[in-house]
Amino acid sequence: MTFQTACLTDDLAPEEAMLVELDGVDGAPVPVALVRDADGDYHAISDICSHGQVSLSDGEVEGCLVECWLHGSQFDVRTGQPVQLPAIRPVPVYPVNVEGDKVLVDIDGQPAGGS
């Protein structure tokens, strides 16, 4: 596992999301939605909605759900599973570690959930 710094802990308030682009194994940027849930925990999922191919980090966060702004699909940021149609496929979920004031994400390994 290779963790990369995604942001600082103060960069996200609870129930906020942001787009970060991390270096993939092939050197290409990988778009990741970094989400802080209502409890203050950090989660990393693919930024691309599995239904509409748009940025999930632009959507609203409520509790542990992020909503796609285009068609209203909602995903559980802990599992990547869709909980609201029209999306039926999950999005990949990446491991997150918080070390001091840094939020680290590992996109190198096989992501959980998603395709």
Rank of each mutant, 00 (worst) to 15 (best):
S50F: 08
V103E: 00
L12T: 03
L22W: 05
V20P: 05
S55T: 13
G52E: 14
V61W: 06
H71S: 07
I88T: 14
S115I: 13
G109E: 11
V20L: 04
D11C: 10
Q110Y: 00
V98F: 02
E16G: 00
P111D: 03
S73M: 04
G63I: 03
G63L: 03
Q81K: 14
D10I: 04
L56D: 04
G109Q: 15
I107A: 10
G40H: 12
D108S: 14
M18P: 01
A87E: 13
V91P: 02
H51A: 10
S57W: 02
Q53K: 14
V32P: 08
G72H: 05
Q110K: 13
V96Y: 05
V103G: 00
V103M: 02
D10Y: 13
M1T: 14
G100P: 07
G109Y: 10
Q110S: 08
N97T: 03
L8A: 12
P29I: 09
E16D: 11
S55V: 05
R78D: 00
E60D: 10
G72D: 06
G52L: 11
V96N: 02
Y94H: 12
P95N: 01
A17F: 00
V98M: 09
G24D: 07
C64R: 15
R89A: 05
G113R: 06
S57D: 05
G113W: 03
S115W: 14
G52Y: 00
H71A: 04
T2D: 13
M1P: 14
P31N: 07
Y94L: 07
D106Y: 01
S57V: 06
G24Q: 10
G40R: 14
L56R: 12
V93I: 02
G80M: 03
F75R: 10
D23W: 06
G80K: 10
P95V: 03
G40V: 12
D58Q: 15
T2H: 13
D41W: 07
M1K: 13
V105A: 03
L34T: 04
A6L: 08
H71F: 01
L104E: 12
D106Q: 09
V66N: 09
Q53S: 09
G59S: 09
L56I: 12
L8Q: 13
A44M: 08
V105E: 02
E99D: 11
A6Y: 00
A13K: 15
S46D: 15
P90Y: 04
G63W: 11
V105N: 01
S55N: 14
V83G: 08
E62G: 07
A33V: 06
L85W: 13
Q53A: 10
E16N: 08
G24Y: 05
R78N: 02
P31L: 11
E15H: 07
A6C: 01
E15Q: 15
V35E: 00
V61C: 08
P111K: 02
D23S: 14
T5N: 08
P14R: 12
E60M: 04
V98P: 03
G109K: 08
S55D: 13
V20Y: 01
E21C: 06
P92T: 02
G72I: 09
D11I: 00
L70Q: 05
E60A: 10
L34N: 02
E60K: 13
E62W: 00
V98A: 01
A44C: 10
